[in-house]
């Protein structure tokens, strides 16, 4: 469904949604697989923490790239950006 979005920013939002889906499955597995002491498996939650951090950094860099692209090309439509070198 990511092919529906025409703006680069909307595609970024869809990317965030996918990362969050992975996070949700990780947390569900951590709840499902209890340790010997009856607590959830916290390794998965640490992994979710890392995923959230990397996603935030990636969003910052991606939005900076979009702004730089808008400055040089005056557009953020996906179909208008079809050359590698400009």
């Amino acid at each position: 469904m990511i092919t529906l979005g025409d703006y680069l920013i909307v595609i970024f939002m869809a990317l965030e949604l996918m990362l969050n889906a992975a996070n949700l499955s990780l947390v569900a597995f951590s709840r499902f697989r209890l340790g010997p002491d009856g607590l959830p498996d916290y390794n998965a939650q640490v992994l979710v923490f890392f995923v959230i951090t990397v996603a935030a950094a990636e969003v910052a860099v991606g939005l900076a790239i979009i702004v730089a692209l808008f400055r040089t090309r005056r557009t953020t439509h996906v179909e208008d950006i079809n050359t590698l070198k400009f």
Binding site: N23, L24, V27, A28, Q45, F49
Partner: peptide, 10 residues
Amino acid sequence: LFVLLNAFFI
């Protein structure tokens, strides 16, 4: 959903 799965920190 995370809170309901007992992952309050997340």
